[in-house]
Amino acid sequence: MTFVKKSPWIFHLNTGSCNGCDIEAVACVTPGFDIERLGAKLVGSPRHADIILVTGPVNKHSLERIKTVVEQAPKGKVIVGIGACTISGGLFKDSYNTDPPLGKHMPVTMYIPGCPPKPEAIIAGLAKALEALK
């Protein structure tokens, strides 16, 4: 029998997205997809998190606060960007109030593309992020 070496705890951080990626990330936790059976769990504080799921084009107004939240996570954390907005700004790349991409502000391990990505894609991405946690 093989054991799961790590149960990733996930913190979800919204940097001003349209809610599309956020509800898909939460849908992963609920019975339709249920990532809890794989040991993953949504936590309320970044201090408990192994993986930080970031959504949205980075909002200029909350940029400093986003950095503070991410710094609170323990060392060895993995930052995963969800959606087209974190990669390039998506539909909001021309906006005066956003500052994409996310990689400019923090070290991002991986991106999950899509607008919004399906829960299946998010779960596949998290499985790959587990390898980065080792």
């Binding site: 919204n14 001003g16 909002n59 107004h61 909350s62 909001f92 906006s95 005066y96 109030n97």
Partner: peptide
């Protein structure tokens, strides 16, 4: 914190 300037 969520303003994206869509109207513009």
């Amino acid at each position: 914190f969520n303003h994206r300037g869509i109207e513009k």
